[in-house]
């Protein structure tokens, strides 16, 4: 090209005027998939035997009904406002009790061998979906930084950027959003970092460009838009536990026998279904993960 563009403006930052003025409608219609600029390249992935055979929810359902308080507390708000989030450049710092702390650029993370993992997602509010994530095991990332013997827990942090995350301008939660896993949970083969869904990169409202997915825990454990992963000896503080320790524990495993203090967790409404279905222990992943909690009182460690 003869005329050079200024180098400091990323193509992803430029939104066509027409799209900008119709952004809400656009976000609803296209589920925000096209806004990050890179999205025309579909993500290649391998099928996984760890996928469920349940029928996945539609992309529209998955990308228009989200709990992502950084963009508002109403579940329709993330789809309306997450378009403002710039997901490039993006780095994930992995440090703490590790031999080789380092930062990973999102381009490098997208080049990991990707798998499609169709997982059930159970929200602590009592609804559920089935989502065809694209991602890679968290363990494969953690192995690259060589955790040492003091690495007992993994702490995660979401981006804090109120200029692009309007919800962070209110103090509904103590920002940045924080989550954590025990080391064995983090290394479990079901635990993935997702970078896409439905063969494409993640819509912003679903936690672009990279998020955690832990399918046997309530959805809020699966932290979105991660910028930091810190390995440590102490159990990390987690956002919902900090907000209300009485209602949200560190483990937050899906458990139909332990009710939320204000509502029952025995059943759930699968989005798209009329009748509620029974909630399964560990969201149906008990065969794979029950061993992690052997001997623990799950009523106490909720």
């Amino acid at each position: 090209m003869l005329i050079k563009k200024p180098a400091d403006i990323q193509p992803s930052e430029i939104t066509p005027e027409g799209v900008y003025f119709n952004r809400r409608q656009f976000m609803l219609g296209s589920a925000g998939l096209l806004l990050s600029g890179e999205t025309l390249a579909a993500l290649a992935s391998k099928k996984s035997p760890l996928s469920t055979s349940d029928k996945p929810n539609s992309l529209k359902d998955i990308s228009s009904y989200n709990n992502y308080y950084e963009f508002g507390t109403d579940k329709s708000e993330p789809a309306m406002y997450a378009g403002s989030l710039k997901t490039r450049p993006w780095n994930v710092v992995v440090d703490g009790e590790v031999g080789k702390p380092r930062s990973f650029g999102i381009e490098e993370l997208l080049k990991q061998p990707l798998e499609e993992r169709i997982y059930r997602l159970r929200c602590v509010e009592g609804w559920s979906m089935v989502i065809p994530w694209i991602g890679f095991p968290l363990s494969s990332l953690l192995k690259q930084v060589a955790p040492n013997s003091r690495a007992k827990y993994v702490a995660f942090e979401t981006l804090q950027r109120p200029s692009e995350m309007p919800g962070q301008r209110s103090r509904v939660l103590d920002w940045p959003y924080r989550e954590g896993l025990r080391m064995d949970e983090a290394m479990h083969p079901l635990t993935i970092l997702a970078v896409g869904l439905y063969n494409d990169v993640l819509p912003n409202q679903n936690g672009a460009p990279i998020r955690l997915v832990v399918p046997w825990k309530y959805g809020f454990k699966s932290i979105k838009s991660i910028v930091r992963i810190h390995l440590q000896e102490q159990m990390p503080a987690t956002s919902w536990n900090m907000a209300n320790a009485h209602e949200y524990g560190f483990y937050s495993n899906v458990n139909p026998e332990v009710d939320h203090p204000r509502w029952s967790q025995a059943s759930e409404r699968r989005i798209g279904e009329f009748l509620k279905r029974k909630t399964l222990m560990f969201n149906g992943y008990g065969d794979q993960v029950a061993g992690l909690y052997r001997g623990m009182d799950l009523r106490k460690n909720f």
């Binding site: 529209k60 359902d61 228009s64 009904y65 579940k75 609804w127 409404r269 989005i271």
Partner: peptide, 9 residues
């Protein structure tokens, strides 16, 4: 019109 993802809620 199907605009509500979780109609009952």
């Amino acid at each position: 019109s199907g605009a509500a993802v979780n109609p009952v809620e």
